[in-house]
Write a protein that binds this DNA or RNA. Structure first.
Length: 329
RNA sequence: AGGGCCGUAGCUCGAACUGGUAGAGCGGCGGACUCCAAAUCCGCGGGUUGGGGGUUCGAAUCCCUCCGGCCCUGCCA
């Protein structure tokens, strides 16, 4: 039986190159070796104040991008989180197993909540819902960026506690930390991760940006002192990030790129990188636009995905309910 | 549940006299410069003054109410 993998993206803000290289592209690569469950986690998107209409639009955008990027509904399960009620229900059960203290320690909660006037309870219990997402599918691996590792660990802790107290129920997942691609940095702030909700649009290359916009954004990308093109994330975070993007898109190694661009200057490199980004995104964008014109087809894929997901999740949930004392009545 | 303080641009606001045209700094955006950026210089936009109602010729300012935040006290478990 192939390993099962669960991962998801929140339908908030603009999908960008970091999401593609760091997540979706890696999932596509894993597609033939794992049973992939790929979710559009709209329940998580509600932890911050949101507009229902915008949320629905973002859900379709993420779905279209999953497909445009090459996730194949014949190989992977693609669905919207809120379409499978088991997520919410298991989250409640796990919320009674998780401890206040462990959630209060989550760095993402502390960072996101900091300075905010009000914070929803959902933002606090977010990791519990994420644990439910993962455990419902008996996922063995969870491909995530470095920043999500802590949440997967919490998921394991909660699952272990549940298993120890109520009997073996859940499979403990392993985080699969994605390599260099797991962390594409912001173009204007190369020491911080590229973000959908960054202050300036110059932080990211949106997957919908046209060639002119991409050109402008790469041109304004922050670089480092000195003119040599070499990969050194500590000393030269700016150019290293651009090299990472280049390497992930073309498959060339860092040393190949360093050799090729010796003595070439940042400006020259940026122009070539722009070409690479534009050309790599082009087919994806074409497919994306086509999918957007056919919402019925996307909807049908999501419906079938939700059906399969609900089948798997339902079994796990009923196992958990029994152990937890909820059925039979 | 009762009481106190508070809410102005993306952020910080001990800006806005006594009720009289809503401001600054930072950030952001654009340009110059630069191999490209950064720094620097030049320029630019940005607001339902938390929402709604009232008083007034006129409300950020006064009154009522709701929302949200911080604090004190009480009540229940």
């Amino acid at each position: 039986m192939p390993k099962r993998s669960f991962s998801g993206i929140q339908p908030t803000g603009n999908l960008h190159l970091g999401n593609y290289l760091g997540a979706i592209k890696q999932w596509v690569k894993l597609q033939d070796t794992v049973d992939g469950i790929y979710c559009i986690v709209d329940l998580h998107a509600c932890t911050a104040t949101h507009d229902p209409v915008v949320l629905r639009r973002s859900v379709s955008a993420v779905a279209a991008f999953y497909l445009a990027a090459g996730l194949d509904p014949a190989k992977s399960t693609i669905f919207v989180q809120s379409a499978v009620g088991a997520h919410s229900e298991l989250a409640w059960i796990l919320g009674c197993v998780a401890r206040f203290g462990e959630l209060a320690r989550m760095t993402q909660f502390k960072e996101k909540g900091e300075g905010r006037e009000s914070v929803s309870v959902g933002l606090f219990t977010y990791p519990v819902l994420m644990a439910a997402d993962i455990l419902l599918y008996d996922a063995n691996v969870v491909p995530v960026g470095e920043d999500q590792k802590q949440h997967v660990e919490l998921c394991r802790d909660v699952a272990e506690r549940f298993n120890a107290t109520f009997g073996d129920t859940f499979i403990l997942p392993e985080p699969l930390i994605l390599g260099t691609g797991g962390r594409i940095m912001g173009l204007d702030q190369p020491t911080k991760k590229m973000s959908k909700s960054a202050g300036s649009p110059n932080n990211y290359i949106a997957l919908e940006d046209d060639p002119d916009t991409i050109t402008r954004k790469i041109k304004t990308a922050v670089t480092d002192t000195g003119g040599q093109i070499c990969y050194a994330p500590e000393e030269k975070p700016g150019i290293s990030n651009l090299l990472t993007i280049y390497s992930l898109l073309t498959g060339e190694t860092m040393s190949d790129l360093e050799a090729r661009y010796t003595g070439k200057g940042y400006g020259f490199f940026k122009r070539e990188l722009t070409e690479v980004v534009v050309e790599n995104l082009r087919p994806l964008q074409t497919r994306y636009r086509a999918l957007k014109k056919d919402p019925a087809a996307v909807g049908e894929i999501l419906r079938q995905g939700a059906e399969r997901a609900a089948g798997i999740a339902g079994k796990t949930l009923s196992r958990a309910r029994k152990r937890f004392g909820m059925e039979p009545v």
